[in-house]
């Protein structure tokens, strides 16, 4: 069963003369364990599509199914739990919580999931080890480089063992070498845990790591 099913989805922002059709009749299925790369120019709708898959936006028309659930039908509490347990997010600008240390940033989703402290510590340190950030566990984000912050963000995205990781321009703020390391890391996690990755990018390097490539233009899938 596909982990992501997008059926005839459209998204309209605004109304009247200022209305913008961000997505039109988009349908797509993504299988578990895939690394899917969505490419397209700025404004092509790839981030909007990613937001639909990540349950952080709802379609104006059509339906989205993630891991057998239709997020639009869930209550706030159920949707929050669903996000916490099913989906991990990585962003171009890392979005770490500045007042929390690297350890605490990664620990946060587990806290929300109600994991006991001992388990949290073990899992978080193991992940920070995997992304090469164990040494900086007690550091605050403003003391870390962009690459280091993105590693922490990846650890945070993976800490609750999500089935799906959504990554929006994960390498855009990084230099080539760091970007390559991050992509290698994702590939390794995909291979180890069969975690599905959906990445939006216009970086050709990212595309080389994908098992499937989707191209978008003007809110439609073109290839």
């Amino acid at each position: 069963m596909p982990i992501v099913q997008v059926q005839q989805v459209g998204k309209l922002y605004g109304s009247g003369t200022v209305a913008v059709q961000a997505l039109s009749e988009v349908s797509i299925e993504i299988e578990t364990g895939d690394i899917v790369c969505i490419m397209g120019a700025s404004g092509s709708g790839k981030s909007t599509l990613l937001n639909m898959m990540g349950t952080i936006d709802t379609p104006s028309e059509g339906t989205v199914w993630i891991a057998g659930q239709q997020p639009a039908m869930l209550s706030d509490g159920a949707l929050s739990r669903f996000r916490n347990q099913t989906i991990g997010f990585v962003f171009q600008s890392f979005n770490l919580i500045p007042v929390l240390t690297a350890f605490e940033n990664v620990e946060y989703p587990l806290l929300l999931a109600g994991e006991p402290k001992a388990t949290r510590t073990e899992v978080v340190m193991d992940l920070l080890q995997q992304v090469g950030m164990a040494e900086w566990a007690r550091s605050y984000p403003n003391c870390l480089s962009g690459g280091q912050q993105q590693r922490v963000a990846i650890a945070r995205a993976l800490v609750a063992r999500p089935q799906l990781v959504i990554a929006d321009e994960p390498t855009a703020s990084l230099d080539h070498q760091t970007g390559t390391h991050i992509l290698e890391l994702m590939k390794q996690i995909n291979a180890t845990h069969r975690t599905t990755f959906v990445l939006a990018t216009h970086d050709p390097l990212v595309a080389t790591y994908a098992t499937r490539l989707i191209r978008m233009d003007s809110g439609r899938i073109v290839a």
């Binding site: 990540g54 952080i56 706030d76 916490n84 997010f89 979005n95 946060y108």
Partner: peptide, 16 residues
């Protein structure tokens, strides 16, 4: 605002 968004994405409810 972004931070609030990120907390929500990680699973924080509106109440939280």
């Amino acid at each position: 605002v972004r931070e609030i968004g990120m907390l929500r994405i990680m699973g924080s409810t509106q109440g939280a």
